[in-house]
Amino acid sequence: MTRVLHVTQAVGAGVESAITQYVRSTPDLDHSVLALRRDDRERVGGNGDLSWTYADRPLTFARMVRSAGRDADVVHLHSSVAGAVGRVAVDRVGARVVYTPHALAHLGGDRRGRAAFRFVERMLVSRAAAFGAVSDHEAEELVSLGADPAGVLVLPHAVEPGGVARSFDERADRAVAVGRVAWQKDPGLFAAIAGEAIGRGIQSAWRWVGAGDPDSEAALAAAGVGVTGWRGSAEVRDLVGSSRIMVHTAHYEGLPISVLESMAAGTPVVARRIPSLRGLPISTFTTLEEALAHVRRLSDPGVWQTESTAVREFVCSSYNATRQAAALRALYEVAS
């Protein structure tokens, strides 16, 4: 049985969901996870599908990655920090290294930060045998960094419809966001949209499912947004599936699982127009006024139902376990 070690510094958000999906879609592989816990408030991973091992300090994390990598056939690195640490730590230990960024860090932040992350990615590109991009846009970015196109495969997420979607009247009159409260997700824009929507009487209830930067959490609360803290995956799905819309404001992404899970639940999405979301049948915006117009439009039950049906049918046919399992096995084969 092929032994796959997943390595990540991101726990309690989309990366954890992605790893859980990979495990469920390929039960014939022997999966384990090594993670760096970066926030004491962060919900620990592990849901019965596999074991999680944690490091509490970066140096310990690097040492554990190198040691564990010796016993793995494939080391699958997730997110930019683990991607860098892992490609250095696992070098020359014999394991095949696969890297999935889940949103390349050089796509966000200030100019110097972007340049630094791009430099690191270019320097380390030869230390991975294959790359699993979560979207076409991420695949294009990896090739632009110097990755061999033949070694870059799109690794689609897999979401489950989870039964019959609730109707408009069965849902709470609420807009929801999911993820870490951090700069990448732009909670400030979410707070601005919520504040205006509440003030104009367009949408009164707003909730952010997740946790993160305390100042940003306080700003969300001041705008009238309820911040739930980290919740288990089942509770997150229930919150999304019982809300009328999702509003996604991130500066950049790989391809957010939260958006796909919202679509699978029949919850229409209003999202900032970013490259990784192209091709999805969702409502996108570039200005606050455009966002508010979409929120107002989806308050009409007929419009909402049409969009709810369309997004659910699309995501369930395009992002499923069968497609993911085939892509994952092909990725590990390319790395061999």
Results as ranks from 00 to 15, higher is better:
residue 2 T to K: 11
residue 3 R to T: 15
residue 4 V to R: 11
residue 12 G to T: 12
residue 13 A to Q: 09
residue 14 G to V: 02
residue 15 V to I: 11
residue 18 A to E: 06
residue 18 A to M: 13
residue 19 I to P: 01
residue 24 R to F: 06
residue 29 L to N: 07
residue 30 D to G: 03
residue 33 V to N: 07
residue 37 R to E: 15
residue 37 R to H: 15
residue 38 R to I: 10
residue 38 R to Q: 14
residue 39 D to Y: 14
residue 43 R to F: 08
residue 43 R to T: 12
residue 44 V to A: 15
residue 46 G to F: 10
residue 47 N to V: 03
residue 53 T to I: 06
residue 54 Y to R: 12
residue 54 Y to Q: 09
residue 55 A to F: 09
residue 61 F to P: 02
residue 64 M to F: 09
residue 65 V to T: 14
residue 66 R to P: 14
residue 74 V to L: 14
residue 78 H to E: 08
residue 80 S to P: 05
residue 81 V to Q: 13
residue 83 G to M: 03
residue 84 A to Q: 13
residue 84 A to H: 12
residue 85 V to F: 09
residue 87 R to W: 09
residue 88 V to I: 14
residue 89 A to W: 12
residue 90 V to M: 15
residue 91 D to H: 13
residue 93 V to R: 13
residue 96 R to L: 08
residue 96 R to Y: 11
residue 97 V to A: 05
residue 98 V to T: 12
residue 100 T to L: 08
residue 105 A to K: 07
residue 110 D to N: 14
residue 111 R to I: 07
residue 113 G to M: 08
residue 113 G to W: 10
residue 117 F to G: 08
residue 121 E to V: 04
residue 121 E to W: 06
residue 123 M to H: 11
residue 125 V to Q: 12
residue 125 V to G: 07
residue 132 G to Q: 10
residue 134 V to Y: 00
residue 139 A to Q: 02
residue 141 E to M: 08
residue 147 A to M: 10
residue 148 D to R: 04
residue 148 D to T: 04
residue 151 G to Y: 03
residue 152 V to D: 02
residue 159 V to N: 03
residue 161 P to K: 09
residue 162 G to P: 10
residue 162 G to Y: 08
residue 163 G to N: 13
residue 167 S to Q: 01
residue 168 F to L: 04
residue 168 F to S: 03
residue 168 F to D: 04
residue 169 D to R: 05
residue 172 A to L: 09
residue 173 D to G: 05
residue 173 D to F: 04
residue 178 V to D: 00
residue 185 K to V: 01
residue 193 I to W: 05
residue 196 E to L: 06
residue 196 E to T: 09
residue 196 E to H: 11
residue 196 E to V: 05
residue 198 I to C: 10
residue 199 G to S: 14
residue 203 Q to D: 10
residue 205 A to G: 06
residue 212 G to P: 09
residue 213 D to L: 06
residue 213 D to E: 13
residue 214 P to M: 10
residue 215 D to S: 11
residue 216 S to C: 08
residue 218 A to Q: 14
residue 219 A to K: 10
residue 221 A to S: 12
residue 227 V to T: 02
residue 228 T to V: 01
residue 234 A to I: 10
residue 235 E to D: 15
residue 240 V to P: 00
residue 242 S to K: 03
residue 246 M to F: 05
residue 250 A to Q: 00
residue 251 H to C: 03
residue 252 Y to K: 05
residue 252 Y to S: 11
residue 254 G to A: 03
residue 254 G to W: 00
residue 256 P to K: 00
residue 257 I to M: 02
residue 258 S to E: 01
residue 259 V to I: 02
residue 259 V to E: 00
residue 267 T to P: 08
residue 272 R to N: 01
residue 274 I to F: 00
residue 276 S to W: 00
residue 278 R to E: 15
residue 279 G to H: 04
residue 280 L to S: 01
residue 280 L to W: 00
residue 281 P to E: 04
residue 283 S to A: 15
residue 283 S to Y: 09
residue 284 T to F: 06
residue 289 E to F: 05
residue 291 A to K: 00
residue 292 L to W: 03
residue 295 V to H: 07
residue 298 L to C: 14
residue 300 D to Q: 02
residue 300 D to R: 01
residue 300 D to W: 01
residue 304 W to A: 01
residue 306 T to N: 05
residue 308 S to N: 07
residue 310 A to K: 04
residue 311 V to Y: 02
residue 315 V to D: 01
residue 321 A to F: 12
residue 327 A to C: 11
residue 332 Y to C: 09
residue 334 V to M: 11
residue 334 V to L: 15
residue 335 A to Y: 12
residue 336 S to Y: 08
residue 336 S to D: 14
